[in-house]
């Protein structure tokens, strides 16, 4: 996967985040070398102010990519650049300065806030490390809370006094408090109820529209990604299956896996859902976890209705089909699915 994704006009300015041929293997030694990598030669770019969705099911490697970018999981190969600066091998210890530019919001709003510390203490922590004075840091923490729709005096309270949605707002405020350039959103709404999820998505959309923040938005729900992201990257077993503008990928998918993913998402309209269900059952996509794919070919082969010999023998390269990049030998036949 040597080719880069089209970044359009953003080519001139350095990307906010640039990932090239990232490989991550878990474990050590021989065992790791023989295991299937969790992330396998993934490349993606995020322009300043852009939101890119990273979609896939469990085990697709989407969270691992987020961890590798943040320095929580050392990459095996490839590079990660933040505004042109290579941070691939920068250890967490050396990231103190970098920490201001690259922030994270985790999935679980319950375990991501220390229950023993006030919201103010939690928000001030990164600022103090950057050398911001106590009073000014607290001032900025209060402003960050207000920017996510919470009253400034929330800083004096403990996490247990807030609901799940409010905690996720606090986690977002913690990410924003030091004016970052890139925020990794690791499934930020998956643990929330539907109405709360909508509030947090609206908040993220407001933040996206207001500033030149770049979001790497990791999610498993294509509908949520379509709401927030401009571009989307679809992962399966650590490899990019398809990537492109969000409407093209979600409405006119070119990869059989993306087709299966969009067809499986249920919609709350009974008649439409019945039709979608029939269409999905007619697709002939195999059961998840049926058999392990051959390491040489396409990882989706065991489930793919279009698979042929070439798919087993040769890993399909990402190529431009219609509007999006697709890793499928038979992408031209996919619309007929």
């Amino acid at each position: 996967m040597t080719q880069t994704l089209p970044t359009g006009s953003a080519v001139a300015i350095p990307s906010a985040l640039e990932i090239r041929d990232l490989v991550v293997r878990y474990g050590r030694g021989r065992k790791a070398r023989n295991a299937t990598p969790a992330v396998d030669r993934v490349s993606l770019d995020i322009a300043p102010g852009e939101t890119v969705g990273l979609v896939g099911e469990s085990g697709s490697g989407k969270s691992t990519i987020g961890k590798a970018v943040l320095g929580l999981q050392p990459p095996t190969a490839g590079t990660v650049r933040l505004h042109g600066t290579d941070i691939t091998q920068t250890s967490l210890k050396q990231r103190t300065k970098l920490a201001a530019d690259l922030r994270v919001v985790f999935q679980d709003p319950y375990s991501s806030l220390n229950p023993a510390r006030t919201i103010g203490q939690t928000l001030v922590e990164p600022l103090r490390l950057l050398g911001v004075g106590g009073a000014e840091a607290m001032q900025r923490a209060r402003k960050a809370l207000e920017s996510v729709g919470l009253p400034a005096d929330a800083a004096d309270r403990f996490p247990s006094q807030f609901s799940g949605g409010q905690r996720q707002r606090i986690a977002i405020a913690r990410a924003l408090v030091c004016d970052p350039k890139v925020v990794v959103l690791d499934e930020p709404v998956s643990a929330l109820d539907l109405s709360t999820q909508a509030q947090v998505l609206n908040l993220l959309a407001d933040l996206r529209d207001r500033s030149d923040l770049a979001f790497l938005f990791i999610a498993h729900d294509l509908g949520v990604v379509r709401f927030l992201a401009q571009r989307v990257v679809v992962l399966y077993r650590g490899q990019v299956m398809e990537s492109g503008p969000v409407d093209a990928v979600t409405l006119r998918p070119r990869h059989p896996y993306t087709v299966a993913l969009t067809a499986a998402a249920p919609v709350p309209r009974p008649a439409e859902q019945a039709a979608r269900r029939q269409a999905r059952e007619a697709l002939g996509v195999g059961t998840a976890g049926a058999a392990s794919p051959a390491p040489t070919g396409c990882p989706f082969v065991p489930r793919c209705p279009l698979a042929t010999d070439v798919c087993v023998a040769e890993r399909p390269p990402l190529r431009l089909v219609a509007e999006s990049l697709t890793a499928c030998h038979h992408a031209e036949q996919v619309p007929a699915l």
């Binding site: 943040l70 320095g71 990231r95 970098l98 920490a99 985790f106 999935q107 922590e125 490390l129």
Partner: peptide, 27 residues
């Protein structure tokens, strides 16, 4: 250490000693 607020503190750039004293030990 599995809790996400430990990861969040590490992303903040908090040193190992302070992560342990401020976040791990109280828990």
């Amino acid at each position: 250490r599995q809790r996400l607020y430990i990861d969040a503190a590490r992303v903040n750039g908090l040193g190992s000693l302070r992560v342990n004293v401020v976040h791990v030990l109280p828990a």
